[in-house]
């Protein structure tokens, strides 16, 4: 089960935060196919956000084929995302790169800035919106 944390000051739409956090949980293997997502009631009771926002986020996840709603039972995970958790080769390469960056004297913020700018360059136009 995931627990959503809503940051009202982030500037990111609330329903997108739920979508992103669900995807993150799928990538990290915290959610697996067959797992049930918390009900809208459970989410809003914990986060004090609008119920329709949760439903909108779940509809978005459903549209992307990641979850499916089963009437009267809840919303369940259908698929997993990305290449999986810790043992993926891409993660290994990124870890290598981070080690080299550190060895070259870059600090945490330098690395984050560099990473963000590369992300921006390669994923232009796919910005979540």
């Amino acid at each position: 089960m995931v627990e959503y944390r809503i940051d009202r000051r982030s500037g990111v739409a609330t329903y997108l935060q739920i979508v992103q956090q669900t995807k993150q949980a799928l990538r990290m293997g915290l959610l697996e196919p067959g797992d049930r997502l918390p009900t809208a009631r459970e989410v809003v009771e914990a986060t004090a956000i609008n119920p329709n926002t949760v439903l909108k986020a779940y509809r978005e996840l459903e549209r992307e084929g990641l979850v499916e709603a089963r009437r009267g039972l809840g919303t369940f995970v259908r698929a997993t995302l990305g290449t999986g958790p810790a043992d993926s080769p891409l993660r290994g390469e990124l870890a290598d790169w981070a080690r080299r960056a550190r060895a070259a004297g870059l600090d945490r913020e330098d690395v984050a800035a560099l990473f963000t700018s590369v992300l921006k360059e390669h994923f232009e136009g796919e910005d979540d919106r």
């Binding site: 009631r41 459970e42 809003v44 914990a46």
Partner: peptide, 27 residues
Amino acid sequence: GLLMADAAEHGTTVVMSSHILTELEGA
């Protein structure tokens, strides 16, 4: 949260006046 949960469960329509803008933002 309880208010929103109740609205989620029963489809209650809520009208609330408030000065606390951040509270309104997500709800």
